[in-house]
Design a binder for these strands. Structure first.
Lengths: 228, 228
DNA sequence: TTATTTTATTTGTACTACATAATAGGGCAT
DNA sequence: ATGCCCTATTATGTAGTACAAATAAAATAA
């Protein structure tokens, strides 16, 4: 009998507080009524009364939705539905010190996957101006100390994501970077890939998509080597 | 003068409520004291008094952290620091109906990037057993109606992520799937790639990583074609 | 020592009261 | 009639009290 997955087979009894329930009910309500951003919502007292809870509990639930950016409230005007910033939400819990090692490793790999997968997007959207800027960044990293190179590493890969023309992707990568660094420094292996940033720039200039994919793979090889 | 980014240059004056401030203070406090999961936290009244706010406001802030899974509370026992489920948090705001079109498009592309970038991980971790299961899934999709094929499509790509041995990645992909579908059905183009699922399986069996990358690219070609 | 009951404590919920801010509407001057 | 200012209204923000519920810890009984 496998009891290793006990916590999954027997999920802990979560004493749903009223705030939890109300949060869920509100979500359902917003979805069911298909409110659109900007639409006015009922006032707190009405909601509290309708749900049969104290204004206190209702406000705890509203506070959550407000944190997520799903609603905005102003005095007198009431509450309106808003567009949550999906990444801002994510960022709140993305702290290397809190995340368990297994997830840290997963995120480390996730960034590798992103780096490897970005090539096609890059080749669809890259412009000569972009490549020039990227080259400038890559050239700066020669003859500098360690801490500068780390900053430059971030700048280079950040520019790559920027060139992908995908804002969400770029922000996502920026958020993942600290975790990536954290894992890398944990392992204390200052290895370097066989393909440098300048090499990658050169490929971008005159190479094919497949060339770039191979180049990026070689560039990240030290990281891939960590994975068994 | 560029005024398109006005909302970024002039961020709206956010009337920080006490709950907002307290939430931040608590985050800083938890970080500064470097609490570890399982550690007991001060009780509500102590925190409220220390911060100089009512227990009400404090609880609104705590409610947020509780939602994110950063803390857990039990009666009498008090509160303890917990490990947030980073993806569970994300999921709360990932609703196609709320997200703006630009971000939807970004996420659509994000999934393409993931699919393209997963190859290396896949080739590091794939097992014959996995490939067999994948083949079973791929074979099922022949001669079935549309709705079944969609489910199967999800199963196939889901299995791929599972084979990557990265739980976070798999869950992430599952969360992204509805948005992907949403964007695809929006555009009403039931096109199919030149490389089928079974072709991909065949490559996995006897082809190289690069072969697989090319195959996946061809498989997703219809989607890439949408991007200009 | 072990089992049971009691106690003490901490979170959960409700209710009241008032502060604050922003809108809406009326009144006034032009 | 138009525009401005001021006031009244109203919804959210904050504080405080009270009590219910749950449970760990202490006290008591077997």
């Amino acid at each position: 009998m496998d009891i290793s997955n006990l916590s999954k087979d027997l999920p802990p009894i979560i004493s749903n507080t009223m705030a939890d329930v109300v949060e869920l009910k509100l979500r359902e309500y917003l979805k069911r009524k298909s409110f659109k951003p900007g639409d006015a919502l009922p006032k707190e007292l009405e909601l509290a009364e309708a749900l049969g809870v104290s204004r206190n509990v209702l406000r705890e639930a509203l506070s959550r939705l407000r944190m997520l950016g799903m609603i905005e409230t102003r005095k007198k005007r009431g509450m309106v539905l808003a567009r949550p910033d999906i990444l801002g939400t994510f960022e709140r819990v993305l702290d290397p010190l809190i995340i368990d090692n297994s997830t840290l490793q997963d995120i480390f790999e996730l960034r590798l996957v992103l780096e490897m997968g970005i090539a096609d997007l890059l080749y669809i959207r890259k412009t000569p101006k972009d490549i020039l800027e990227l080259e400038t960044i890559a050239k700066k990293e020669i003859n500098h100390d360690h801490s500068f190179r780390i900053k430059n590493e971030i700048a280079f890969h950040g520019k790559l994501y920027e060139m992908s023309g995908n804002d969400t992707l770029k922000r996502f990568q920026i958020m993942l970077m600290p975790i990536f660094d954290y894992v890398v420094t944990l392992e204390q292996k200052p290895t370097r890939g066989l393909v440098s940033h300048l090499d990658l720039v050169e490929i971008l200039k005159s190479g094919s998509v497949d060339d770039f994919k191979k180049g990026m793979q070689a560039h990240l090889q030290p990281h891939f080597n960590r994975l068994k």
